[in-house]
């Protein structure tokens, strides 16, 4: 499924870039229980317990940053596995310098496979979309200067 969106914050682009570039910081935008840490300069891993209502599971996450052109663009790939399923995301996040801060635009594909895709897609597709939106919204709030 395709996800896409954007926001604008009154923070400097380098700051915004740094926020997104640090998995630990970015992880603070997740509302679901999680534990995420960097394993090297471009990789991170951890766990995330997520779902919709009572359909919840713990996913093992592995992610990486790639094709970085700081502070313009980065590609974040994420592989999650849990509940007999795989959730694979590849997002391109772009940062545009504006007169009053930074415009953030994200676009990418999220693929679900296994049980979730075959049994639960009807139920989780909307959730995934919402969670991605919520993540970026949380980032926006945190990045907005007080």
């Amino acid at each position: 499924m395709h996800v896409e969106g954007d926001f604008h914050v009154r923070s400097a682009r380098t700051l915004v870039w740094a926020f997104f570039r640090d998995p630990a910081t970015l992880a603070t935008c997740l509302e679901d229980p999680h534990e995420i840490h960097a394993t090297d300069a471009t990789h991170f891993e951890g766990t995330l317990t997520a779902g919709v209502a009572f359909i919840r599971g713990t996913f093992r996450l592995r992610g990486s940053y790639a094709s970085e052109t700081p502070p313009n663009q980065m590609q974040v790939t994420l592989q999650g596995s849990g509940m007999g399923s795989g959730v694979d995301a590849a997002l391109t996040v772009s940062f545009a310098e504006g007169s009053e801060g930074t415009g953030v635009h994200w676009t990418g594909e999220i693929k679900m496979s296994g049980t979730i895709a075959t049994v639960g897609e009807r139920l989780v597709k909307g959730t995934v979309d919402k969670k991605v939106t919520a993540l970026f919204e949380a980032a926006r709030v945190k990045l907005e200067p007080a």
Binding site: K111, M112, S113, G114, T115, A117, T118, V119
Partner: peptide
Amino acid sequence: YDADGNNKATSFL
């Protein structure tokens, strides 16, 4: 099968 190869009929549902 969807484009990713997921079987779309994995139960009698």
